[in-house]
Simulated scan of single mutants.
Amino acid sequence: MATLRLYNVVVDCEDALAQARFWAAVLGWELRQQEPGWATVGDPDGPQRLGFGPVPEGKTVKNRLHLDLLPEQGVSREAERARLEELGARLLQTVTEDGLVAHDVMADPEGNEFCLLEPYPGYFG
């Protein structure tokens, strides 16, 4: 039996508070903690958290870990992409598989990649 639980996913960044505010707006979460050089956001209805801590170097290569975001049922990927771009994200590429859109690869304001999935019905089953 495992004796550990996932407490936090931490994102290296330059500006912890700015990143926390961006991701809180993206996910509809709340800012939970802010200290000099550290900030967290959390799901108001659950234990999920993201932490943001500054590092001295900037991002230079592709993430080894990324988030997949799924629009709510009935919300289009295009509408969510527009909302995310208004918040400061940018589209890097749209990925297709077998002739259908699979997801958009996007970047947050500091360049960390994440995917915005096409909300196919199978995701909600």
Rank of each mutant, 00 (worst) to 15 (best):
Q33T: 12
Q33I: 04
Q33W: 07
Q33P: 03
Q33L: 15
Q34S: 12
E35V: 07
P36A: 09
P36K: 10
P36S: 10
P36Q: 11
P36E: 13
G37K: 06
A39I: 02
A39Y: 00
A39H: 00
T40S: 09
V41M: 03
V41P: 00
V41N: 00
D43Y: 04
D43R: 02
P44G: 05
P44Q: 06
P44A: 03
D45H: 09
D45I: 02
G46H: 04
G46W: 00
P47M: 15
P47S: 15
Q48G: 06
Q48S: 14
Q48F: 10
R49Q: 15
R49S: 06
L50T: 05
L50I: 07
G51S: 07
F52K: 00
G53T: 11
G53Y: 05
G53I: 08
G53P: 01
P54R: 11
P54D: 12
V55L: 07
V55A: 06
V55W: 03
V55S: 10
V55F: 03
V55H: 08
P56Q: 12
E57G: 07
E57S: 13
G58K: 15
G58R: 14
G58T: 10
K59N: 05
K59G: 08
K59S: 11
T60V: 14
V61D: 14
V61H: 14
K62M: 14
K62I: 13
R64I: 11
R64N: 14
R64L: 13
R64H: 12
R64G: 15
H66N: 11
H66G: 05
L67G: 04
D68E: 07
D68M: 07
L69S: 04
L69T: 09
L70C: 05
L70T: 05
P71G: 01
E72R: 10
E72L: 11
E72I: 05
E72H: 13
E72Q: 12
G74F: 06
G74P: 03
S76I: 05
S76K: 08
R77D: 03
R77E: 05
R77V: 00
E78I: 10
E78C: 07
E78T: 11
E78N: 06
E78P: 00
E78Q: 12
A79W: 01
A79G: 10
A79P: 08
E80T: 08
E80F: 02
E80Y: 04
E80P: 01
R81M: 13
R81G: 08
A82H: 11
R83E: 08
R83K: 10
R83Y: 04
L84W: 00
E85S: 06
E86T: 13
G88M: 07
G88I: 02
A89N: 00
A89Q: 01
R90D: 08
